[in-house]
Design a protein around this nucleic acid. Structure first.
Length: 366
DNA sequence: CATACGTGGAT
DNA sequence: TATCCAAGTAT
């Protein structure tokens, strides 16, 4: 059935395809803040923020980030905590830390100029095949593929490519296709147009084929297979973790916060102390007092539960029972543990789940 | 290669 | 409500 369709890369009218695509992009492209100029730094920041993240979500973050860190030098010299605070709520926080590390490398090793070769730019932390191609093409006009989810969806339909786009190896198939199709006159607009088409017209569930500028070049449109493509296998389901957290105050009303480890989930963000709960055990409050003593060296008193938080990540779910309590003593006063006032707490980067937790705590006081 | 890594919006 | 997702990368 599917074998009937050839991958039409060799029969497609490449020049006609490029012209139709580029003409459409020229007329219909969205007015986005990172399209104001081609500053490689701003292109870079936008591409990192846009990884697995919607345009509408990114826009306000991009404005604030560029205002706070306008240049490579500014970001290089910033405290990591400030960078994470600027990233707070965007998710995938290693992006922010990798971006700063890479920007520092560019500042020191390349005199502040973002490198313009595939080899050099790909060696930077957080810059993978997609981002390397995006920066090279958009900022420097170099004809490199920038294959993201949009491009795979669009080209799977146009060229009738039935490979499973969930498999990492499949990206290479699309990169090879882009190398044949890309406009050498305008690689920047070509790559952006492919993505823009995926975002505006060639959407996952209901593509607007009748509005598509390249439908006459599209195998799927001719064969009516646009709703079957791309092929993407299911991901497996995630696990649950039961947790208990506590917003703990000392006798001056200061709150105890904890800095998460530098690797792994929500690395280097701050949180309210939290412990995993073992179901078949003594009461939750007793379990918490024990665990808080072991983990944080804190002697505490747990008062009432102020709420519950369910937080769904891409790969797991946190179910958190949130308590309020008092600090009797903190033995382990180290760098990852701080007592802060309600005013100071605003300066620290928290995951969204803990922002919600803090709101519940404030509400419970009135 | 498969899995970890966040979040909020769409259907 | 459940599922999938949105301009991916590191390990």
């Amino acid at each position: 059935m599917k074998e009937i369709s050839k991958n039409n890369i060799d029969s497609i009218d490449i020049k006609g395809f490029q012209d139709d695509l580029l003409c459409w992009f020229q007329a219909e492209q969205r007015d986005l803040p990172w399209r104001k100029d081609q500053d490689p730094y701003k292109v870079w920041v936008s591409e990192i923020m846009l990884q697995q993240t919607r345009v509408d979500t990114v826009i306000p973050y991009f404005h604030r980030f560029i205002e706070q860190f306008p240049t490579i030098k500014d970001l290089s010299e910033a405290k990591e905590e400030k960078v994470l605070k600027a990233w707070e709520g965007l998710g995938y926080y290693s992006r922010a830390r990798n971006l700063q590390a890479a920007v520092r490398e560019v500042h020191e090793k390349y005199g502040g100029k973002v490198p313009d070769t595939p080899k050099e730019i790909s060696s930077l932390k957080g810059v993978g095949p997609y981002t390397a191609g995006a920066i090279l093409s958009i900022a420097y006009g170099i004809p490199e593929p920038a294959v993201d989810g949009n491009v795979m969806r669009v080209l799977s339909r146009i060229l009738s490519i039935w490979d499973d786009i969930a498999k990492p190896s499949t990206r290479k198939v699309f990169e090879a296709a882009v190398r044949k199709l890309i406009s050498h006159e305008n690689p920047s607009h070509f790559n952006q147009a492919l993505m823009e088409l995926g975002a505006l017209i060639c959407t996952p569930t209901s593509p607007s084929c009748l509005l598509c500028p390249v439908r006459e070049h599209c195998t799927a449109f001719h064969e009516g297979t646009q709703l079957e493509l791309p092929i993407k296998t299911k991901t497996k389901k995630q696990r649950n973790v039961q947790l208990a957290a506590a917003v703990l105050a000392d006798n001056q009303g200061r709150i105890l916060i904890h800095k998460r480890p530098e690797k792994g989930l929500l690395a280097n963000l701050w949180e309210f102390p939290m412990v995993e709960i073992n179901l078949a055990y003594v009461s939750e409050k007793e379990q918490m007092k024990d665990a808080f003593h072991t983990e944080y060296g804190a002697k505490i008193e747990i008062d009432e539960m102020t709420g519950q938080i369910e937080h769904v990540f891409s790969h797991l779910t946190w179910n958190i029972n949130v308590y309020k309590g008092k600090i009797i003593s903190v033995v382990k006063e180290e760098a990852d543990l701080k007592l802060v006032t309600l005013e100071e707490i605003k300066e620290f980067p928290f995951p969204v789940s803990h922002q919600k937790m803090f709101k519940q705590f404030l509400d419970s006081k009135v």
